[in-house]
Amino acid sequence: MLVLALDTATPVVTAGLVDLPGSGPPVPLASRAYDGRKHGELLVPAVRALCAEAGRPLPSVDAIVVGAGPGPFTGLRVGIVTAAALGHALDVPVHGVCSHDGLALTAAGVGEPGAERPQAGPGNLLVVTDARRREVYWAAYDPAARRLTGPTVEPPAALAERLSELAIGTVVGDPAFAGPLGVEITGPGTPSPVGLAGVAAGALRAGRAPAPVEPLYLRRPDAVEPTGRKRVTT
């Protein structure tokens, strides 16, 4: 099964083609990673370049997997809308997955030939990404990359107080939070196409119809409905 995997939840946009066999881990065919500030201009051209590199025409894609966050509003919309448009045009299913789940599998080196796995600590795995506004998105996983709690958003200081409670041994994600959290952050900072496809592998192999993709913003919108009419006369 040929899977197109996309993620725009972090400052680095990821796109890739993955071969998902009937059993065993996904196999990477081609991938691209680039500056997330240009996701709107570069995402679709990147998909075309992937197909050319892998020698697989776009209509041969069997399914699309897209990271649904957590992430910033604009970035998530670009990835999810692009995935939905391609899915509609190609008449293939679009599966939304938690981007942190994909990053956790990426950190575990799932299906990545020669992937460098972060030095595992004695406890669980913590994934952290930038939520802006001096906050962090995070989720905790067991050593097999199965999610234990999260994702959620809060200030780094609040998360730092919970590290011992969460029994964290390894932290991956955005290295900018090493200081605020008082920990070493190793491994990948973004989910790989193989990691994203791995999250949806069970549903894809079973042929399950995907649920509508719901972005994980984890915050209430800044815009609110007005509570009353404004006077336009004095």
Rank of each mutant, 00 (worst) to 15 (best):
T14K: 11
V18C: 01
T234H: 12
L181T: 04
V94I: 06
P70Q: 02
L166G: 04
P215S: 10
R134K: 15
R48C: 00
P57N: 07
R162G: 00
A157L: 10
G198T: 12
V18S: 01
T14C: 14
L126Q: 04
R48S: 04
G121M: 10
R147N: 02
C98R: 05
L58S: 05
L17D: 01
T106I: 14
R134I: 01
R231Q: 13
A52H: 11
L6M: 13
A197L: 01
S192C: 09
I185N: 09
D222Q: 15
V183S: 05
V199L: 03
R162I: 02
T82Y: 11
Y137G: 04
R205E: 03
V81P: 06
D91E: 15
R77I: 03
L216D: 08
A211G: 14
H95L: 11
L126P: 01
I168A: 09
A54T: 11
V213R: 10
P113V: 08
P175E: 07
A104G: 09
T14F: 00
P143T: 07
E165Q: 13
A140L: 00
E165M: 02
A107V: 05
R205C: 09
V12Q: 10
P28G: 10
P215N: 10
V47P: 12
L105S: 03
I185P: 09
V194W: 05
R117E: 12
A197K: 04
V47A: 06
A197H: 07
G179S: 12
R146G: 06
E116N: 05
R208I: 02
L218F: 02
V92F: 07
G198F: 01
V81W: 09
S99E: 04
T129V: 03
A46M: 10
P57Q: 03
E161C: 09
P28F: 04
A63N: 10
A85F: 07
V92T: 08
G55M: 03
T14M: 14
F177L: 07
G150Y: 00
A46L: 07
E53Y: 12
T8D: 12
R162F: 00
G198A: 15
A176N: 12
P118A: 06
L4N: 12
V127S: 05
R231E: 14
A49Q: 14
G40N: 13
G87M: 03
T233G: 00
A176R: 15
D7Y: 14
Y34P: 05
L196E: 02
L50T: 06
S164T: 15
L218N: 06
G87V: 01
G36C: 11
A9S: 15
V92N: 08
E225R: 15
A178Y: 10
D19A: 14
G69Q: 11
G102D: 08
A68P: 06
L76R: 15
T227A: 15
A203Y: 01
P156S: 08
V3E: 00
G111Y: 05
P191F: 08
T106P: 13
R147T: 08
G22S: 14
V128E: 11
I64S: 01
G195M: 09
V12L: 14
E135S: 07
L148V: 09
T186N: 12
Y217E: 12
R56E: 13
A145E: 04
